[in-house]
Amino acid sequence: MPTEVHVTIGRIEVSAVPATAPEKRAPTERRQPMSLDEYLARRQRGGP
């Protein structure tokens, strides 16, 4: 004869752990967008 097993769960508690704050990066300098004239001159020179 098989043995019967009864399992009951009364209450489950779940708590969240706050994530660590990400490290702040130093602000990077943003260059101004290249104008069409600058792009064409650079392209003509063969520069990057």
Rank of each mutant, 00 (worst) to 15 (best):
8 T>A: 11
43 R>A: 11
44 Q>K: 13
27 P>H: 03
24 K>S: 06
35 S>D: 12
18 P>Q: 10
15 S>P: 00
47 G>M: 12
13 E>W: 13
44 Q>Y: 12
7 V>Y: 14
4 E>Y: 10
25 R>N: 02
38 E>M: 06
22 P>R: 05
14 V>D: 02
27 P>N: 06
9 I>Y: 15
47 G>D: 12
29 E>M: 02
46 G>H: 11
30 R>N: 09
28 T>R: 15
42 R>D: 10
42 R>C: 07
5 V>K: 13
39 Y>D: 02
41 A>L: 04
5 V>D: 04
13 E>T: 12
45 R>P: 00
1 M>V: 04
1 M>N: 11
15 S>G: 04
42 R>V: 03
17 V>L: 13
5 V>L: 13
10 G>V: 05
12 I>S: 11
11 R>A: 14
30 R>V: 07
3 T>Q: 15
43 R>E: 14
37 D>T: 05
42 R>G: 07
32 Q>N: 06
35 S>A: 05
8 T>N: 08
5 V>M: 03
42 R>H: 07
7 V>H: 14
4 E>G: 01
11 R>W: 15
25 R>V: 00
23 E>W: 02
34 M>L: 10
12 I>C: 08
2 P>D: 08
45 R>F: 02
3 T>E: 13
31 R>Q: 05
3 T>M: 09
42 R>S: 08
12 I>R: 10
24 K>G: 02
10 G>N: 12
6 H>F: 03
25 R>F: 07
43 R>L: 11
4 E>S: 02
10 G>M: 12
25 R>L: 10
18 P>K: 04
27 P>T: 03
18 P>S: 05
14 V>S: 05
4 E>I: 01
31 R>E: 03
3 T>W: 08
10 G>A: 12
21 A>P: 01
38 E>V: 01
12 I>Y: 06
36 L>Q: 07
16 A>K: 13
20 T>M: 06
5 V>W: 07
40 L>I: 09
36 L>S: 04
9 I>E: 14
48 P>T: 03
48 P>G: 13
16 A>S: 08
36 L>T: 01
30 R>Y: 11
33 P>I: 00
5 V>C: 07
16 A>G: 08
11 R>F: 14
43 R>F: 15
43 R>C: 03
24 K>V: 03
39 Y>F: 15
47 G>I: 04
27 P>E: 06
4 E>H: 02
38 E>T: 01
44 Q>E: 15
7 V>L: 15
46 G>W: 09
3 T>S: 11
19 A>V: 07
44 Q>P: 00
35 S>Y: 09
31 R>H: 05
22 P>V: 02
10 G>R: 13
26 A>E: 13
9 I>N: 12
22 P>C: 01
9 I>G: 07
41 A>Q: 12
31 R>A: 01
